[in-house]
């Protein structure tokens, strides 16, 4: 498991079933935000930005891998495989000789991915790429369809320009959410149980 921590909000995540529940729960929350931002698109158009912020928070603080906050948070080690930024030097602690060894760059095993972890990372990105690229034509089709409706070359009683635009917005938003979180979600979903004993 490419993990630095086996806990999220105090809940142990070393079992695969627990991680799968976490992935489902996170995507359920993100889906709620997506639906909310679409429903309230007219009255509160800024809502979609909250969806992006929540996705970023989930990707950085819960899933990990993307390397936000110097790669200190989240279940998965940062994908770039580079050391996190050194913590601020605790000048007072060093001056008073209070455990100065804790200052500086974290332990290498907490951020460096070994060969197996790199292989898992790359495979997860391969799968995620297939899914993201596979979903992209839906945005394209909707955009082409929306343009026809907007220009009046296609007229259907039940279909309005606003409906098509909202559909494009919804699919694009889901695609963005997937692109930001999918590789880490795939790793969390597939990794077997971890024996901590």
């Amino acid at each position: 498991m490419t993990s630095t921590s086996y806990n999220v909000f105090g809940i142990p995540m070393h079992e695969r079933s627990a991680r799968r529940k976490l992935v489902v729960a996170v995507y359920a929350v993100l889906l709620l935000f997506c639906v909310g931002s679409i429903v309230f698109a007219r009255t509160a158009p800024i809502g979609y930005s909250w969806t992006i912020y929540v996705t970023m928070a989930a990707a950085m603080l819960v899933f990990g891998g993307v390397g936000g906050f110097g790669g200190r948070y989240g279940l998965i080690k940062p994908f770039p495989n580079k050391p996190p930024r050194p913590e601020p030097v605790m000048v007072d602690a060093i001056r008073l000789q209070l455990a100065p060894m804790t200052a500086g760059t974290p332990n290498e095993s907490s951020w460096r991915n070994d060969e197996r972890e790199l292989s898992r990372r790359d495979r997860a990105h391969y799968r995620a790429y297939q899914m993201v690229a596979g979903a992209f034509p839906v945005v394209l089709l909707l955009a082409a369809f929306g343009l026809k409706v907007a220009q009046g070359s296609l007229q259907l009683a039940w279909l309005t320009t606003a409906t098509v635009l909202q559909s494009i917005f919804a699919v694009a938003l889901l695609e963005t959410v997937l692109a930001m979180t999918l590789p880490a979600a795939i790793i969390l979903w597939n990794e077997p149980d971890i024996d901590l004993g």
Binding site: F79, S119, R121, D122, R123, H125, Y126, A128, Y129, V132, A179, P183
Partner: peptide, 18 residues
Amino acid sequence: TQRDVAHYTAYRILRWSF
């Protein structure tokens, strides 16, 4: 392995280009 590494690199490039 090479295919997976290429997709990892492509994913990173894609995020920026998107």
